[in-house]
Design a protein around this nucleic acid. Structure first.
Length: 356
RNA sequence: UCCUGCGUAGCUCAAUGGUAGAGUAGGUGACUGUUAAUCACUUGGUUGUAGGUUCGAGUCCUACCGCAGGAGCCA
């Protein structure tokens, strides 16, 4: 190798050098302390650390493409009478996948035990080639019984605040390093967010702000359409200059399990948007009414058979509850200023790439 | 998956369609100095892969693979 700088892209190809560089080292120390902050925060607030399964049998959790798990011989697949693959011969006797979310499992224990959180690997087989997507990433997913959307947003803000403060306390040198070499405004931004009030607006208010903006957008702003990256960026970079929580989205663009508002047009969803990296948290108050949930599933063309256990959660002693999912690597990105999500995880897994 | 750009020595990069080069690393020798990188000489290539156009392709065309940025999907 030459002397001098080696690019982050090149380092991803050299296992023994990557882990010895100051950037990757500092990133992994921050990642480590953010893990600790996560456990400290939730355990300190009476959340139970729940280990949800990595292998799931839910056919479609509605969160994107899944990796299939099988011990069948791909060269010689057993067939059923209809000519399809006979999964009764597979290891679990049915079709199984790697988990795309621990949420549904988390909800069951939240309803049984009160407050839980999961923190573990999550898998998405989406063909996403961006600086903020991984095929294997870590997700923090709290779920709490008797929480409303408001309490959910407060929980998210308190959690983020705790993480920023913990980092400033424990990773002084590394933050200085990132502040000097990677992202000039990092330290001031983190410090500003420790005590700041976190902005919260509804989707409808966000649309109004965008319509009033004296800025041209490539995509039109229409109530009912999902916010585009450029819209999210305008909101948190131009309007609020920091993270902003957007709530109460139109029901058509959100998942079936989110609680329907009384207007019957919006659901109690929340997204926390961050400058540069976009959505860092997605969550909602869950639909706890059996009849409404069944109706919503029908609208999404989901088979109730596949979700029998999930529906039973409402059928037998339903309680209001809420939760969210936070992409841990995106949090690390936000806290380090690192531009590419592949550089904030020890061994990145992306489409066409799973070396060492 | 879509758009744009890129892929040349171990590494970082040059090369109006006309003999593939430099820096650095490596090797050999000098220097015994001080702080990534002192001097001289030197090894090193199927130009991402496969085709095509051409008298002639690193350069132009097609497909594929990979990387970067942006978009979609999302966390």
């Amino acid at each position: 190798m030459q002397k001098g700088r080696v690019s982050l892209e090149k380092l991803r190809e050299v296992a023994h050098l990557r882990c010895r560089t100051n950037v990757i080292g500092a990133t992994m120390r921050v990642r480590n302390q953010l893990s600790k902050a996560t456990h400290d925060f939730f355990m300190g607030n009476d959340f139970l650390y729940l280990h949800t399964p990595i292998i799931t049998s839910s056919d479609c959790e509605g969160a994107g493409q899944m990796f299939q798990v099988s011990t069948l011989d791909l060269e010689n697949l057993p067939k059923n009478d209809a000519g399809g693959i006979d999964y009764s011969h597979d290891f679990f006797g049915r079709k199984t996948h790697l988990s795309v979310s621990g949420q549904l499992n988390g909800e069951t224990y939240a309803c049984g035990m009160g407050r839980i959180y999961t923190f573990g690997p999550t898998f998405r087989a989406e063909n996403s080639n961006t600086s903020r997507h991984l095929a294997e990433f870590w997700m923090v997913e709290p779920e709490a019984a008797f929480f409303t959307l408001s309490e959910n947003t407060l929980l998210a803000a308190a959690y983020l605040r705790h993480c920023f403060k913990h980092l400033l306390d424990t990773c002084q040198d590394d933050i200085d390093f990132f502040n000097l070499r990677i992202d000039k405004g990092l330290r001031a931004r983190l410090e500003g967010l420790v005590d700041a009030e976190y902005k919260r607006i509804t989707y409808t208010e966000a649309v109004d702000l965008l319509l009033k903006a004296d800025q041209k957008f490539e995509f039109p702003v229409i109530w009912g359409a999902d916010l585009q990256s450029e819209h999210e960026r305008y909101l948190c970079e131009e309007v609020f200059n920091g993270p902003v929580t957007v709530t109460d989205y139109p029901k058509e663009i959100k998942a079936f399990y989110m609680k329907l508002n009384d207007d019957e047009k919006t659901v109690r969803a929340m997204d926390v948007l961050c400058p540069q990296i976009g959505e860092i948290i997605g969550g909602a108050e869950r639909e706890d009414r059996l009849d409404v949930l069944e109706h919503r599933m029908a609208q999404h063309d989901l088979d109730p058979e596949d979700y029998a256990w999930f529906l039973d959660l409402r059928r037998y002693g339903s309680v209001p509850h809420a939760g969210f999912g936070l992409g841990f690597e995106r949090l690390v990105q936000f806290c380090t200023g690192m531009g590419n999500i592949r550089d904030v995880i020890p061994f990145p897994r992306t489409p066409k790439n799973a070396s060492f």
